[in-house]
Simulated scan of single mutants.
Amino acid sequence: MSSGPATTTVSLHPQASTDPQMLRWVTTATLPAELPVLDRLVADGVLARSEIGAGEIRTWLADGSSWDTAGPVVRTALFAALRQLPHTPALSGELLAERIAELIAREVAPVAASHGGGITVESVREGVLTVAMTGACHGCSLGHKTLDDLVRETVTAHFPQIHTVRAANPRRSRFALGIPGLKKSK
């Protein structure tokens, strides 16, 4: 009994962006620097360009194309190409932390920065991601929502091996405000 070529199980789903011409394809596959199928889609006039990032492939429509017709073509081509990738062991250690840090810097940090805060990776160990929340994020009463709604959802969509996200120093710093010369009224 002969077995065919080995294939890899692939998770791939499209995610809209603010640019209607661009679609992100989020995947759990370990992506190579280049996928020849993307060059073919550009040459065939389906896509204008593409970029490969940590856990995602970004694709832009060619002029005159629509996602209604191009979407299924791109999805089918990507699934076929990603299933043929050689099996690679799951990311771990420093490489996993590095990839998660890239993802947070790209997708989470700009949101935190817009509110005067920052979020960086402290450590990744045994499926637990620990992040440092700095600036306005440190001690913020909505920090738990940022962790759950933004950090956890973003990271686990790309790295399902992460099952817990926590803040390195979740305690709120409290201090008394004293104004010299101000007396209580009776």
Rank of each mutant, 00 (worst) to 15 (best):
E102K: 12
A80N: 11
A80D: 02
A112E: 05
D149S: 08
V128Q: 08
F159V: 02
A48C: 01
T27F: 08
V131W: 12
L61Q: 06
E94M: 04
G93R: 12
E51P: 01
A109P: 00
H87D: 07
A112Q: 03
L96G: 03
A105Y: 04
L47G: 08
A136I: 01
V37R: 07
A54W: 01
G53W: 07
P160T: 09
E94R: 14
P86W: 13
G117R: 07
A54N: 09
S141M: 12
E122M: 05
V26I: 15
G45N: 11
S65K: 15
T59H: 01
W25K: 07
L41T: 03
R40T: 10
V46H: 13
W25D: 02
V73N: 02
R24F: 01
H115T: 08
T69E: 14
V151T: 02
I57Y: 05
L91P: 03
L150M: 13
Q84G: 15
L95D: 06
V131M: 12
S92A: 13
A54S: 14
G143V: 03
V37T: 13
L95C: 01
E107V: 00
T76M: 13
T156P: 04
V128M: 03
V155C: 14
G135C: 10
Q84E: 07
H115S: 09
L61E: 03
P32G: 15
P86M: 12
W60D: 00
P32M: 08
L95G: 01
V124L: 14
P72A: 10
T146H: 07
S141D: 04
E122A: 14
A33I: 00
L61G: 11
C137G: 04
R125F: 06
L147N: 04
D44H: 15
D149L: 15
R49P: 00
P20W: 02
P86F: 15
P72G: 11
A113Q: 10
T28Q: 12
P110S: 09
S50V: 00
T134Q: 07
A62H: 15
L142W: 02
A80E: 09
G53R: 15
A48V: 00
F79V: 07
H115W: 07
D149G: 15
I52Q: 07
G45A: 08
A33V: 01
T120E: 13
G143I: 00
D39A: 15
D44F: 12
L35Q: 02
S65M: 14
I100W: 11
S123F: 05
P89C: 09
V73S: 09
V26S: 04
T18N: 05
V111Y: 10
V155D: 09
S66E: 08
S66F: 08
L129C: 11
Q84M: 14
S65N: 10
G64E: 08
P32S: 11
A80L: 11
W60R: 04
V121N: 03
R125M: 02
G135S: 13
G55W: 05
S65E: 10
R24W: 05
G71C: 09
E153N: 08
L38E: 00
T69M: 09
L31G: 07
P110D: 03
A90Q: 10
A113R: 08
E34F: 13
D68W: 10
L103A: 11
L61K: 05
V151S: 05
M22N: 06
E107P: 00
T76H: 14
T28R: 08
E94I: 05
T18D: 12
M22H: 10
D19L: 11
T28Y: 03
V108D: 05
G117C: 11
G118Y: 09
A132S: 09
A113K: 04
